[in-house]
Design a protein around this nucleic acid. Structure first.
Length: 495
RNA sequence: GGCGGCAUAGCCAAGUGGCUAAGGCAGCGGUCUGCAAAACCGUUAUUCUCCGGUUCGAGUCCGGAUGCCGCCUCCA
């Protein structure tokens, strides 16, 4: 089996081969730290987190670099509007902190390296110098521009030619530029803006140059995977290629991966449309793994439409998984020893379940190998849940060494899948309590009162006083509390 | 205007030219259950927006039409 990845550069799925056997270098363009993160940031982060986790599962040593843009017009604007004393770094620090909180909550692993643009100004100046020496850039009044006409491959990532771009030019008029498509590598600072000394006077870097410098610094001239949201294909990544390849003469990245956008009611979610919702808001209403499951049940390259209904649906799916996990865990394993059970010795249903689980496990990996098809992979995982539920609710089911062996296998299956997707990491009881407690908080109900009534009902049921039991059920139902009688006792939740 | 993507059941969503078009949610029938819930079993697309073409064979490839969306301006 080999991993295939869709490469934006070639518009094809290609077999993945790392430059260095056993190791993979990934660079993903990170956030500009000037505001609270929204669902779009979450999607991108989760997608690349799963890609990273899967590569690690496949035994690659992954170096994952994701930058923070901590120097930018929007940050400057925010600092000015807030009259912040320490300027842009205070703004950037604040939003980097909230970003990290959000990512930790979502179960997104921290990157291997998270460099900040302002830490690499020297590198940017030296890269711009190289581009000037190579005749790919020019200086005008303290600004430095990249001359796109001098770079033969300009447009190769986004599939556009200079003529295409000219034809559709919606570019601001800037008389300093020789070609309207030229972009700034360095900008002379205006009054009140942060600045750094450079051979071209006091100024600050353009947007694209930081990624060229930081990726080269940590991953080398050429590395394996470069990723980001699909909106970055043009101009950001196109310009990165022009800068990096123009300077080094070597390909920047072998694979370009771009995730699709988050939408609301069919429209792109974006700050300019004002239809964003933040990660923090979503986490108030949903378990983080519900959000992950939702994002991973459609393919990373396609659009993903967020709505309360679709998130609620994802929650039901997640409930299903955790119910299965709870059932497995609640089997009284006690002291029963199954160390003498081996797959080869198993027969009948036990053997059949193990075999089918093994097939599902294989199919899961096949799906992941096919351009990280998490949607299909999760489909097989639902099959596995049904398989195990069926096994456990069968009337022949009894707790015995064979059963424990099979359930142990199931547990391993879910752990393996969960490690790759970043799911099933919570304790089942905790998962359900979190959901319930959240609702209790909203409804203002008294937990002690509810549990007291449940105790009464349990007693009534033991006395086979069905009338009283039903009366209590009805009483609680009026408060939107629904009861479930299971072999392990009565549980409750809020509708 | 230039470039590109998408269109699959009531809804969400996979689908790599060839066995019966994954999976989830909702619905319906059943098993189980004191009732209920969960779970399980069965069922729900003779067909993949429409029209042509290539092929022994197309949801999948090609051309066209329609509709929706994105990039070309900061954006994940």
């Amino acid at each position: 089996m080999s991993l295939k990845i869709y490469n934006t550069r070639t518009k094809k799925k290609e077999t993945f081969k790392p430059l260095r056997a056993g190791g993979v270098g990934i660079y993903v363009c990170g956030i500009t730290a000037y505001d609270i993160c929204h669902a779009g940031h979450a999607r991108s982060a989760v997608v690349f987190d799963v890609i990273k986790k899967y590569l690690q599962y496949r035994s690659y040593e992954v170096t994952y670099v994701k930058n923070f843009t901590d120097l930018d017009d929007k940050i400057i604007k925010k600092a000015i509007s807030e009259g912040v004393s320490r300027g842009i770094s205070e703004i950037a620090d604040r939003y980097i902190r909230t970003y990290n909180e959000d990512m930790d909550a979502l179960g997104v692993d921290r990157p291997t390296i998270s460099p900040r643009a302002t830490e690499h100004i020297d590198g940017m100046i030296s890269l711009i110098n190289t581009l000037l020496q190579k005749g790919l850039a020019y200086v005008v009044d303290g600004d430095v521009y990249y001359a796109v006409e001098k770079w033969k491959d300009y447009g190769k990532l986004s599939g556009r030619t200079l003529e295409d771009l000219m034809a559709g030019a919606r570019v601001e008029v800037n008389e300093k530029k020789r070609n309207p498509l030229d972009f700034a590598l360095w900008k002379a600072s205006k009054e009140g803006e942060p600045w750094w000394d450079s051979p071209w006077g006091r100024g600050r870097p353009g947007w694209h140059i930081e990624c060229s410098v930081m990726s080269q610094r940590f991953l080398g001239d050429t590395f394996d995977i470069h990723g980001g949201g699909e909106d970055l294909i043009f101009p950001h990544h196109e310009n990165e290629i022009a800068q990096s390849e123009g300077a080094s003469g070597k390909p920047l990245a072998n694979f370009w991966i771009h995730n699709g956008f988050v939408r609301i009611k069919g429209e792109k979610m974006s700050k300019s449309l004002g239809n964003t919702f933040t990660i923090k808001d979503m986490l108030k209403n949903y378990h983080p793994e519900v959000l992950r499951l939702f994002m991973l049940t459609s393919h990373y390259r396609g659009p993903l439409d967020f709505s309360d209904d679709s998130l609620d649906e994802a929650r039901l799916g997640m409930d299903r998984f955790y119910a299965t996990l709870k059932n497995i865990r609640d089997v009284p394993a006690s002291e029963m020893d199954y160390s003498q059970i081996f797959l080869e010795k198993l027969q009948g249903r036990h053997r059949e379940v193990c075999d089918r689980l093994a097939v599902l496990s294989e199919k899961f990996l096949e799906a992941m190998d096919d351009d990280f098809n998490t949607a299909r992979a999760i489909g097989y995982t639902f099959d596995a849940a049904r398989l195990i539920n069926g096994y456990m609710t069968d009337e022949q089911f009894t707790v015995c060494p064979e059963t424990l062996f099979v359930l142990h296998r199931a547990k391993i299956y879910f752990e393996e899948v969960g490690r790759i997707l970043g799911l099933f990491l919570d304790e089942p009881d905790n998962y359900f309590c979190r959901a319930r407690d959240r609702k209790v908080g909203e409804s203002g109900l008294d937990v002690k009162e509810i549990e007291c009534l449940i105790k009464e009902r349990v007693a009534a049921r033991e006395a086979k006083d069905w009338e009283k039991a039903d009366e209590i059920r009805r009483l609680l139902a009026e408060k939107r509390v629904s009861l479930k009688d299971t072999p392990a006792g009565t549980t409750w939740e809020i509708e």
